Computed example of a mutant assay.
Amino acid sequence: MENQAYQAGDIVYVFYRNPHAQDVANIQEAAVVNNPEKDGELAVFLYETYYPITNELAMYATEEEANKAYDYYYGNN
């Protein structure tokens, strides 16, 4: 994740691993929202689930940035 200030309502692009096939990753559009479980924190809302925003989350401001990172990490040219 880049050091960037996100706000509730922003649209971001994240790497999402299929929980049924761990060797499959995709880029998914997600929304930045206020975390309903922790006041004052933000989360990413994806597939009906809230994910806390941490440095472990591969999150990009644009789909182009996400695609470039995906190609870099997964070797697609």
Score class of each variant (00 low, 15 high):
11 I>M: 10
72 Y>F: 09
18 N>D: 15
35 N>T: 02
51 Y>N: 08
69 A>C: 01
77 N>Q: 14
60 Y>R: 02
2 E>K: 14
74 Y>L: 14
21 A>M: 05
12 V>I: 10
1 M>S: 13
64 E>K: 15
44 V>P: 00
65 E>T: 04
21 A>I: 11
70 Y>W: 07
60 Y>A: 06
51 Y>H: 13
2 E>S: 15
46 L>V: 08
72 Y>P: 00
51 Y>K: 05
64 E>L: 09
71 D>Q: 15
70 Y>Q: 01
37 E>G: 06
63 E>Q: 10
46 L>P: 00
27 I>C: 09
57 L>M: 14
56 E>I: 00
44 V>M: 07
57 L>C: 13
69 A>Q: 13
7 Q>D: 08
33 V>S: 05
34 N>M: 02
23 D>I: 00
56 E>W: 07
37 E>Q: 13
48 E>N: 14
68 K>Y: 07
1 M>N: 02
61 A>C: 04
48 E>T: 09
52 P>K: 05
37 E>T: 03
55 N>S: 10
68 K>G: 01
56 E>M: 04
73 Y>W: 14
41 E>M: 10
45 F>C: 04
61 A>R: 08
61 A>V: 00
76 N>P: 00
66 A>F: 04
72 Y>E: 15
68 K>R: 14
71 D>C: 14
13 Y>G: 03
1 M>K: 05
13 Y>Q: 01
25 A>T: 15
36 P>I: 00
68 K>L: 13
67 N>H: 06
19 P>E: 12
74 Y>V: 00
51 Y>T: 13
63 E>L: 09
32 V>A: 13
68 K>E: 15
45 F>E: 10
23 D>L: 07
14 V>D: 00
41 E>H: 12
29 E>K: 14
61 A>W: 04
43 A>M: 03
58 A>D: 14
40 G>T: 07
69 A>S: 10
3 N>I: 05
22 Q>F: 12
62 T>L: 11
54 T>Y: 13
71 D>P: 00
33 V>G: 03
34 N>T: 03
61 A>Q: 13
72 Y>R: 15
18 N>K: 05
75 G>M: 12
35 N>S: 14
62 T>I: 10
32 V>K: 06
36 P>S: 04
57 L>E: 05
48 E>S: 10
20 H>K: 12
36 P>K: 04
14 V>Y: 02
74 Y>E: 10
30 A>V: 02
54 T>Q: 11
8 A>Q: 07
17 R>L: 03
15 F>I: 02
32 V>D: 09
77 N>H: 08
51 Y>M: 07
60 Y>M: 10
32 V>Y: 12
37 E>P: 00
5 A>F: 09
16 Y>F: 11
3 N>P: 01
3 N>K: 12
50 Y>D: 07
55 N>E: 14
36 P>H: 04
6 Y>G: 03
39 D>V: 01
7 Q>G: 05
70 Y>M: 09
61 A>M: 06
11 I>S: 07
18 N>M: 11
42 L>W: 05
67 N>M: 08
68 K>D: 12
52 P>M: 08
53 I>S: 13
73 Y>P: 00
51 Y>C: 03
27 I>S: 08
42 L>C: 08
60 Y>N: 05
